[in-house]
Design a protein around this nucleic acid. Structure first.
Lengths: 237, 237
DNA sequence: CCGTCTGGGTACTGTCCAGTGTAGTACCGA
DNA sequence: TCGGTACTACACTGGACAGTACCCAGACGG
């Protein structure tokens, strides 16, 4: 499988390769990283990502992470200054996925002619992306810890859901400029489209967990109905 | 102030008066409650509600609660079997507010003639209610703890946001029956209306906290634009 | 005035956990 | 062969915190 296309049960995690927190003294030594370090770090990140998403931040101990990564606790602390840094590094790494998705969204709508068809495709894709189990867990995790990590939550929101809205607004403005839609306020239009399609599902899933994700047929209907309402309001007279 | 109308900075809390967890042996003794007990219990509930909403479940210790309630820890445990029970009792007590609100919503839309005006009023009220700081904190608190208390989260969602949707669906169906709206699927229509109006704000607030609540003028615009889109899709031809 | 009963206060126990210190081991390049 | 570096195992510290044992005070009946 293509390592750049995330599957339902995984998230791409990009963690900075330089060990943070010891840049004070290191004179940029050997740039061929020790394979032992790479191996340990990858195992730790993978284990921690899974555990954080399954149990949350507080209910995951560093001992748990070390155990699942088959690594000693000391090694965890050799690679990450503390539990908080490990957490934030992972979360910010994960948002890379969302950023890429936002860019694709905008591009897909750039120069279409069949507005209705394109919006239906976009809605389906958006809904599918947002209801992927790991994405659901990530949303819940971050909002759950937004009290402990307010900056992180803001950053995630800015980079992921917000960026999707902004990209969508740009695309809709483009369609408006070509006379294919009537878009007085692109930002508002993007929000309307997005939440017509994913709003109700997102809300339910936030409280009931990924088990509450509707079946595929219902997702299809949600996308269709949402776009239909959007078009009846935003189609030029 | 009327004790049944919640203000911005408070939530009505209804907690069962019988001490839970000792019903096994008590043969329904004196029903004139000891005033000391009533006083303690009220202080504990108030303190715990505030602390849970401010800091969350894990970051609030029973010692903190006892201190703010100006009561000993022992007294807390005399009135509530454990921290979990205290938490769930409080959360379920708070949902009483939301339940009442849902009923009012449905009633307000029952037999209006000016559909547009009524929907605008409803949208304004819904948005105002959902962005009240304490409501925002409650949403975040419950979804944050939905991993630890899945049943509680489900119950809250069923009683509060879900009940609003159901009531709204009923009201819209009524308007549809009178030919004032075209409502093929009342449930879907209710979701569309609700999330057109509150979706984007709800999402932002979930990550950025109650500080991200838009100013009154923007709330007004959100309600107006959302209803406008809804009407252009659901007005009979 | 006395015994008893109940709620409340203080001090404690047991546990969990983040983070550290240390001593030893495997591997790698010179 | 030697020195350096990362990893392991393990014990340990310090602190937080849920829940409890035990005693005191005051109300109430006799």
């Amino acid at each position: 499988m293509d390592p750049v296309e995330p599957q339902d049960d995984e998230l791409l995690v990009r963690v900075p390769l330089r060990t943070p927190g010891r840049g004070t003294a290191a004179p940029d030594r050997d740039r061929t990283e020790d394979p032992r370090v790479l191996r340990s770090r990858a195992a730790i990140v993978e284990a921690a990502t899974g555990l954080f998403l399954e149990r949350g931040y507080v209910d995951t101990s560093v001992d748990d992470i070390a155990a699942r990564a088959a690594v000693s606790k000391r090694t965890v602390y050799n690679n990450f200054t503390d539990k908080e840094r490990l957490f934030t590094d992972i979360v910010l790494g994960v948002t890379a996925t969302a950023e890429r998705f936002a860019a694709e969204l905008a591009a897909a709508l750039a120069d279409v002619d069949d507005v209705s068809g394109a919006l239906h495709d976009l809605a389906r894709e958006h809904l599918a992306s947002v209801t992927r189990p790991q994405v659901v867990r990530l949303r819940r995790l971050i909002s759950a810890e937004s009290g402990r990590f307010p900056d992180l939550a803001r950053e995630y929101h800015r980079r992921a859901p917000e960026r999707v809205i902004v990209a969508l607004a740009g695309a809709l403005a483009g369609l408006g400029g070509r006379g294919l839609l009537r878009v007085p306020d692109p930002r508002r239009a993007a929000e309307h489209l997005a939440f017509l399609v994913v709003g109700a599902t997102l809300d339910r899933v936030m409280f009931e967990g990924e088990a509450a994700v509707p079946p595929a047929a219902e997702l299809e209907a949600l996308a269709r109905d949402g776009v239909e309402v959007f078009l009846s309001a935003y189609t030029p007279a």
